[in-house]
Design a protein around this nucleic acid. Structure first.
Lengths: 337, 337
DNA sequence: GTTAGCACTCAACAAGTCCGAGTGCCAGCT
DNA sequence: AGCTGGCACTCGGACTTGTTGAGTGCTAAC
């Protein structure tokens, strides 16, 4: 059905449209790409491609532009993954060098990705299931209030305020000691269970405080930190000020809703490598004319989280995919080491 | 120079232009506002207002629109502060109810402000100079790394990773104990000094670790947490998709730069009440055709930080100012209690 | 299967026309 | 002195029309 030449033509159309931002006609095609055939032949092939739904005409007597289906075929079979330029590699190195803690790594990553791809970037905070509890602290704020702090091996620090009910310093120290003794070294899941069992063994005097602290801990252990995301490169949207209604506005709205962002990144976390969602393939209707390029990051065996970019369907897929893949790998290694 | 009627006309022009979004002519003015004079008279007055620089014509044979100077006069002398509607008061209550910690309060505030004003909102994290140190914790992550945690009375929790140089648990506990003994209860500034003095009195065995921890603490105590801001309501920019180049684009770019945001909010922190910066009055050139309405929040004696909104100069100042003021007050009370 | 030729379509641009909102000015009125 | 009705004038925006050219589909010949 689709012979090599037709595929080559589709590839050329996608490439040209992405860089020129204009519907591409048969003549321009044979001129700019060395197809050794005449425009008429190209036209015939284009008619077939159109019939099959890979390209379309914005209006009669305009060139063709790829459809979502066309882009899909392109990324699946035609796009040679472009290796990063040395400059880009260097950018990654220098950008990430000297990152302090996890928060800082994420902040830098989001900037980096936005800069390389020139798109809006989204990075999900990592959840390392291998993380274990390193310490539990209880710090008194006032006579009635205190802060429960949970530290995990990855350097994550969670906090939650509690009402102490007037418990004295001694009781607090006792509960703290007991928790540390029992929980340190346990994984998130194990710690959850342990907190439950622990309560029963508390001396009556420590019960009320213990209950409150336990509740806070369970909340922290259970709260899925992967629900946190960071966004960057929003000004890159201004490059698409044409398409305001179809790209800029919906993306801005999506960015405001964490839930939507998580759904967008969603699928990428389960499949390995770079995932591309094109136009209507997106689970969120207003983004039907944008694409999402995402990848999970972290060790293959144990994906930590996802990062990616959003942009118009008319995007440079090979470059973007290469950039997303490179950054994902780099950040993965960085967090590991 | 400017008699009451001219002022009334200016007020009417501003009001009308803000709501109608179109240059306003003499006839429309006398019809919509009950000025008991003829259009001709209004025209004469408008000529004067134009000469004085309060209004201008986009082109001959169009109505007038206010200049920055006109808006300035309006907010200074003409804008009757619109009280919030009961619905808005209720919105504030329900939005803020049930906030967990400081972070959550800020998150809610930023949403709230964006929703009420229908603009982009910016909230600076509070710095309470009355805050005192409540606890210092050192939690081991690996044999070589640990996390230093600083808790202050306001519920703020700072963290910073350190290299322990292989110090054992005992040494860590000792340093931790000493720090808590000496620092708890001290203000930020006092604690800074104390850390310095403390080092000299450490037994030699604890010196290396002590140095590292001290460095981390000084960094945390000194780091100005007011440099953190949260932004919301970005999709509201889509309402100004005309003015893309003058409003949407520059605002998006400004939002990406914390430094710029802080400068925008800057002045408001020193003066009490609501501050308005109109057009060219902004210290950041790209925002010369937008306005910033900001207010500090916290107790009058000790302003904690600033919040505000950014939007086109053509904005409903009375409502916006009322909203900013109300939210600032409410958040102040909320954080205090 | 490929190609040259040709008639056809239609968005984009330019030029011309019209319309009316809005103005400034002036003479007359209060 | 200040206000008003009248009037000629201006000019952006909307609409019309004509032209151009990129691009197409079809057909007949190679």
């Amino acid at each position: 059905m689709l012979d090599d030449r037709k595929l080559a033509i589709l590839r050329a159309i996608v490439t040209d449209y992405v860089s020129m931002r204009e519907p591409v006609g048969s003549k321009a095609l044979v001129e700019r790409y060395n197809l050794d055939v005449s425009p008429a032949t190209v036209r015939n092939d284009m008619a077939v491609l159109e019939e099959e739904g890979y390209i379309t005409q914005p209006h009669t007597s305009a060139g063709r532009i790829p459809t979502d289906k066309g882009y899909r075929l392109f990324v699946d079979r035609l796009g040679a993954v472009k290796p990063l330029s040395p400059a880009e590699r260097r950018a990654i190195e220098t950008f990430m060098a000297g990152a302090l803690d996890v928060d800082d790594v994420i902040r830098r990553t989001v900037r980096l990705l936005a800069q390389i791809t020139q798109q809006v970037s989204i990075v999900q905070y990592p959840v390392m299931s291998t993380a274990v509890v390193r310490g539990v602290e209880i710090v008194q704020l006032t006579s009635q209030r205190a802060m429960v702090i949970l530290v995990s091996s990855t350097g994550r620090v969670d906090q939650r305020p509690i009402e102490t009910g007037g418990a004295d310093a001694e009781a607090i120290a006792a509960v703290r000691g007991r928790l540390n003794g029992e929980l340190v070294g346990l994984s998130q899941a194990k710690a959850m269970e342990a907190v439950g069992g622990l309560l029963d063994r508390l001396p009556p005097a420590e019960r009320p405080l213990g209950n409150v602290v336990a509740a806070a801990l369970v909340e922290m252990l259970g709260a899925d930190p992967s629900t946190k995301v960071m966004v960057g490169g929003v000004p890159n949207l201004t490059r698409f000020s044409d398409q305001f209604e179809t790209t800029v506005k919906p993306v801005l709205e999506a960015l405001e809703e964490q839930v939507v962002l998580l759904r967008l990144l969603g699928e990428a976390s389960s499949s390995p490598g770079v995932t591309v969602r094109i136009g209507h393939e997106n689970p969120y209707e207003p983004l039907h004319s944008t694409s999402v390029v995402a990848s999970s990051y972290g060790p293959a065996s144990d994906a930590w989280a996802t990062l990616g970019v959003v942009g118009p369907t008319r995007m440079d897929y090979p470059s973007t995919m290469a950039a997303v893949r490179a950054v994902a790998r780099y950040v993965g290694r960085f967090l590991e080491g």
